[in-house]
Design a binder for these strands. Sequence first.
DNA 1: CCCAGTCGTTGAAGCGTTTCGACGATACGC
DNA 2: GCGTATCGTCGAAACGCTTCAACGACTGGG
Lengths: 348, 348
Amino acid sequence: MAAFTSKDVARIAGVSQSTVSYVMTGKRTISERTRQRVLAAMEQLTYEPHAGARALAGRRTQVVGLVVPFDSGSAATGLLPFIETIASSARANDHEVLLVTVDEGSAGLRRLAGRALCDAIIMMDIRERDERVPVAASLPIPVVLVGVPDDAAGLYCVDLDFEAAARIAVDELVDTGHDEAFVIGYPAAVTDRRINFVGRFLRSVRRHAQMRGLPLTVFEPVEVGRAGATDVVEHILARRGPGRTGVLVPYSAGMGPVLHALRAREVVPGRDISLIGLSTDRQADESEPPYTNVSEEPRDVSRRAMETLFWLLDPRPGVGHPPVDLVAPRLTRRGTVMPAPASAGRSI
Amino acid sequence: MAAFTSKDVARIAGVSQSTVSYVMTGKRTISERTRQRVLAAMEQLTYEPHAGARALAGRRTQVVGLVVPFDSGSAATGLLPFIETIASSARANDHEVLLVTVDEGSAGLRRLAGRALCDAIIMMDIRERDERVPVAASLPIPVVLVGVPDDAAGLYCVDLDFEAAARIAVDELVDTGHDEAFVIGYPAAVTDRRINFVGRFLRSVRRHAQMRGLPLTVFEPVEVGRAGATDVVEHILARRGPGRTGVLVPYSAGMGPVLHALRAREVVPGRDISLIGLSTDRQADESEPPYTNVSEEPRDVSRRAMETLFWLLDPRPGVGHPPVDLVAPRLTRRGTVMPAPASAGRSI
DNA sequence: CCCAGTCGTTGAAGCGTTTCGACGATACGC
DNA sequence: GCGTATCGTCGAAACGCTTCAACGACTGGG
């Protein structure tokens, strides 16, 4: 257990240290015979190369930096699938994951790059105008954004296609013959920070509702939790017209309180009112009752982000990557949207 | 941005490289005048020391390895507070956090230590008999366990005091005059893996209920989710006696479905039946309705684990640490336990 | 049969820190 | 005024790896 070096391996295998190195990296051809001898020696000593020495000599750390938001109670719930997918993708590519929190801001980025702690960075929780983005763009290592800022400064971005999500939700309501829709806006904690997707979703939902002739009201900001949800639900019930009303809840944390407020007033989703959430399928499915949702796809988004990242680290000629890579959401019906009245078919 | 070295700093400050190093580490006295010159030079170049070189020469990586469970859908929800607290504690002590997933098993541990990727390890998701524990104990770097295995092999452990949690819950039921209690056991996914705290909680709850003369039934394993919760709630309602019945739900994911199943049967917690959960205060508070809980304390547990870890890295003579450090849970009443009948005072 | 080209391997020079031993200078006790 | 500490600084030797230039041993073309 006394920490062997590649020199020890070399001695045991009866080769030079450089040969050991070439066996490990595969950067030069080595005869099969020698290779096996070296591998056997490594096995015998349970040799592990010293990461620091490697980083120093080879200018590769085999580490990816991951910048995650913690403070924001809002997005926090959905964070784990991202982290998990990124971690496993990193391991699959023989890389480690170094965790940095968003609240370190640009300083964290500079540290990661300056100290040569990692070869590339995945950054989450992007704001519309994010001071970190220009800093990230100026770093000597690749940075991939999970989110789309107003100005990406040439960086690659991956995210859910929130504009498509908005369209899909509006289409579903229009196609099932709804007369008006309400959107439960994001909590102040989120809108204040101008998280990038908020604007994308809300703008798109407004534009598309107008295009399809669906009267739309957006409540914003709305505090999650009992009181806020109750307030907004009461408002909606009071102000809605006599026709068919749809409600969009564009973040998972909001759905529970809304469902509860409706239940307390004996308004049944799917019968008296329609409800579409924006959340992972799992959350929609495990809710009581399950709700019709447009899917967030944290795993797909992270997977693609990592693909882009590894491609940047080792660009292969054939494949190219789009600078902004958007993952398409899907609608899954779980019965909280009132079906189209028998008389009217699908519109248009 | 062209990556400066300590040699550059030395040149600009007009001192030797070793002096720069001593300024950074403080391992030797340096005159204030020189110190300032060096700091100014570092500032001017926005110098950052190369982590790999540092690790190589100094045998300190300034990184802590964090082994977290992801696969287990069960514990996963409560994971973020742990990670968050550990990350911020690491930063406060000028360390980075390297993420490794539990499913890498012992291999992950060996890699962390063998490659000198970190100076110490925090390991979560400990099983009663955990193959990783002896491996961890044999590593040349300190390992702190979050959880208490049957045999800790001399390693330091930090965790919630689940035995106390069980006692507190039982006491509350007995003191409010309950005649019997049911425990919703853990899902098979958890019990199968023999997560360390399951046994500790269940054994303690049985022992203490017996000691205080409270008839107790444990359902186990119980699948979380609608069907499982509905089944078990029906069983309880069918089998309970005519007296006052209490139900213990020892993990947060189970509470939602149980509450729903009760609501569907118009059984009101705190009036018709009593309910105590084991969860963070936040979860108990944000539930609908909020429920009386015995608190899990992920932040306290992580904080203490990190204190122990840094103490192991840099033992100071005065302070000592207990090998098994248990955080005391607290009971918070939120109205889901029926109050003691007016006639009977607190028992005993 | 000779020369150019490959293939497999080596020795040595870094990579950017830390740290050890040494050394001049200043302070102190007597 | 002399030896002895203490203080502040320096030069050089690690630390364990990668990589470059070089070299002998083959191979094949002419």
